[in-house]
């Protein structure tokens, strides 16, 4: 394990050296791959504006958590929120940056605009529904001619935040799924085949007749994939788009959530898309360098602003509700202290 650390640290050092402009003020982050395009685009725009570089290494959420626990980076990034006790033990502040969503993609001959529901998808991924012509699917798609073809479920083989969000949704929709499979960055899938990354899942679904898969909306939108509509908790059929994602973010209980871990999975909002989740930043509450920590917060403060939002939206991410951003700034001011003094003042 030690060797892995040294290699990881060496990679980060090399990354920061070769990215040019080695100012003392450059900030280093590592972790989740899902928000990486947003963080990298923000970093580039921020450097152009302020001269402070942001080196973000997309190494996966687990790696991001490990790096920030070891304090080898200034901030870590994770898709799945860190457990409360782990945050306390490692003295970390957790806050969300952008919101993403997961959509189902299908390859069914001759059918467009398919509608599915959480319980139905859970049954498909458990091998209980095996044909597209199944009565439960037909009931959601009245008037559509469904082929009598076998369903091939496809999942992410690499452990990922996307799988975490998707399996959380299935666990929330189906008691069977919750007790038999559960929710995690990777699970023991009862049936189907795994492919690596969003591109692997999308490619396999495209190549396999009757396949169903799931990818991040960001990826589906950029590649114009055929997505399905879903029946949400309120019983309404919703399309995956910015308005339904924003509705989910608005319906979440941010005030009652500890460490900003507000669930946006299967919310009660009337127009809410059911598979929505925030991605998080992990910041030490006891930074060794207060100035460096302040730079990190300055960067995200800028990213929460108008310019940051525009960049995020262009990449199909959903900005946080304004009230949540205010709470994040308050948490910065009250929780992050170097030598007993607050690093951030509002």
């Amino acid at each position: 394990m030690k060797i892995a650390h040294i290699l990881g640290a060496a990679a980060l050092v090399a990354g920061s050296v070769f990215s040019g402009g080695v100012f003392a003020a450059d900030i280093n982050g590592a972790g989740a791959s899902f928000p990486a395009p947003a963080y990298q685009a923000w970093g580039a725009a921020y450097k152009a504006k302020t001269g402070t570089g942001v080196n973000y290494q997309s190494i996966g959420s687990g790696g991001g958590q490990n790096q920030i626990i070891n304090r080898t980076v200034d901030f870590g990034a994770s898709d799945a929120p860190m457990a409360d006790d782990k945050l306390t033990t490692n003295n970390l502040l957790q806050f969300p940056t952008v919101i993403g969503s997961v959509v189902a993609i299908v390859n069914v001959d001759g059918v467009e605009g398919l509608t599915l529901s959480g319980p139905v998808i859970a049954d498909i991924y458990q091998g209980k529904i095996t044909k597209w012509s199944d009565a439960k699917i037909a009931e959601l798609n009245k008037g559509k001619k469904l082929p009598d073809a076998a369903i091939v479920p496809v999942y992410r083989s690499d452990s990922s935040g996307t799988s975490y969000v998707f399996t959380s949704y299935l666990a929330s929709s189906s008691a069977d799924w919750k007790s038999n499979v559960g929710a995690a960055t990777s699970v023991q899938w009862p049936t189907g085949a795994g492919a690596k990354g969003n591109e692997g899942v999308a490619g396999t679904v495209k190549n396999t007749k009757g396949a169903i898969g799931y990818v991040e909306y960001v990826y589906a939108a950029a590649n114009k994939l055929a997505t399905t509509d879903l029946v949400n908790k309120a019983g309404k059929v919703v399309k995956p788009d910015v308005s339904t994602f924003t509705a989910a973010a608005a319906a979440a209980d941010w005030k009652g959530a500890k460490n900003f871990n507000a669930s946006m999975i299967d919310t009660a909002g009337a127009d809410a898309w059911p598979i929505v989740s925030a991605t998080f930043i992990l910041l030490p509450k006891n930074p060794t360098s207060g100035a460096q920590s302040a730079e990190v917060m300055k960067f995200f403060d800028w990213a929460y602003g108008k310019e940051g939002d525009e960049i995020a939206e262009k990449l199909h991410y959903i900005p946080l509700p304004e009230a949540v951003i205010q709470d994040v700034r308050k948490a910065w001011a009250s929780e992050v202290k170097a030598d007993g003094k607050a690093v951030w003042t509002n």
């Binding site: 394990m1 190494i59 996966g60 959420s61 687990g62 790696g63 958590q65 490990n66 626990i69 070891n70 083989s157 690499d158 452990s159 990922s160 960055t185 990777s186 189907g192 085949a193 795994g194 690596k196």
Partner: peptide, 19 residues
């Protein structure tokens, strides 16, 4: 049938395995 090898499992699971 789809399966897994030792090497492929390590490649898939390693990035998200926390310390």
């Amino acid at each position: 049938a789809p399966g897994a090898t030792i090497a492929s499992t390590i490649a898939n699971e390693f990035p998200e395995a926390s310390m």
